[in-house]
Design a protein around this nucleic acid. Structure first.
Lengths: 219, 219
DNA sequence: AGTTCCATGTCGCGG
DNA sequence: CCGCGACGTGGAACT
């Protein structure tokens, strides 16, 4: 990564034309060749940029960056206050405890979302083909397997179907009801679920967050 | 702006939870307090960030950034390879569409638009807080600072006011008249400009293009 | 590879 | 301050 702090003007010609009058800014060139021009404010978004892949021309005072679409970023430098290069290496990348995991956590705390008297047996209940998100017991003492997705599509129903097939072989817990839960259940998934005798339900993430006991404790 | 290159782990807890395992990254803290953590690739988007406004706590090895919504960004540092702070100052900001720049170019070629005998001293005349679009001299030998916008709103008048404040400290050119020029000057901006003793004028882009000497030569 | 949809979207305008 | 739409949207997942 190369970091240069310098007075500069910047011109972008591409999907639109844009121009930055002379001022002191930070210009960042990453290992993959992408270039970003930052002011000392605004949000994380640079004032102007050029993503990789591109061709980079360093003509002394002027950097010209061109991408395959023909868009160009031209940076003309004045006084350079600072210029350094440093090797950062590969980044392991961001791990998002995405919404799906959060949904699972919230629903595990609120099994009654799926019916009065529903209680949690355990999260990530193991089967030979992978863990079921939630295993519960309903008020009739029947076992219930719940698959949770952010977006409920056909493959999620297929997944739950396979789990149910294995769970129902276990005499101690059979028969096992299936519930397919998602923020949004697509029509095709609804149809397939109903055809397989699997219930489906749409859950409201924001509402669940609102009644999160962890949050409640704060008040 | 503060720039630190260091080994770090980063945790974000807010609208979702996210975690960055230890690696060498660039952490940028802008003057407005916003924080961005960059890897040496990807696009211009940081791996993780926290926009202003926020409260920043520097606990030696650990930076904790909390915004008013309660979202937190926690950065734990290991080896620091590099750490520097530099003052960039205000940024004049991005001019999109090229319309502003085009207007500036056209008006620089036609300073008499602003009055008979008006002549251009220079474009992008530098001040400590950024360049004035046009600096001119009128037929009475008074200096005139002209700010050009596509859409003339209050903040443009404020900008010109600040320029005038600096320019009028320079005995060689004071007193400096101000003219606020735009394709359309909003009523609030008109009122404010008049209150500040700044003239305002609406310019016709199409008409200016029609009498552009560069274009004329083509015929 | 083309397309659709999500996003800690961000940003700017109008009410 | 809040809703609404555009964005050089960028980026991932799916066809």
């Amino acid at each position: 990564m190369r970091i240069r702090v310098a007075e500069c003007t910047v011109r972008y010609e591409g999907r639109l034309n844009a121009y930055l009058p002379e001022a002191t800014r930070l210009v960042m060139v990453k290992a993959d060749g992408c270039v970003a021009v930052h002011a000392d404010g605004g949000a994380y978004k640079p004032l102007n940029w050029m993503n990789a892949p591109n061709t980079f021309t360093d003509d002394g005072d002027t950097w010209i960056v061109v991408n395959p679409k023909g868009e160009t970023l031209t940076i003309e430098f004045g006084v350079v206050h600072f210029d350094t290069s440093i090797e950062l290496g590969e980044d392991p990348g961001l791990q998002k405890d995405g919404v799906e995991l959060e949904l699972q956590r919230l629903l595990a705390e609120r099994p009654e979302t799926f019916g009065d008297g529903m209680s949690l047996i355990r999260r990530e209940y193991p089967t030979p083909i992978g863990p079921v998100d939630l295993l519960c017991r309903d008020d009739d003492d029947h076992t219930v397997a719940i698959e949770i997705k952010r977006r409920g599509e056909i493959d999620g129903v297929e997944q739950l179907t396979r789990y149910l097939e294995f769970l129902n072989r276990d005499k101690r817990i059979a028969p096992v009801r299936g519930i397919f839960a998602a923020q949004q259940v697509k029509p095709q998934a609804r149809t397939l679920a109903e055809d397989r005798g699997i219930e489906w339900v749409e859950v409201d993430y924001e509402e669940l967050k609102g009644i999160d006991p962890d949050v409640m404790r704060l008040f």
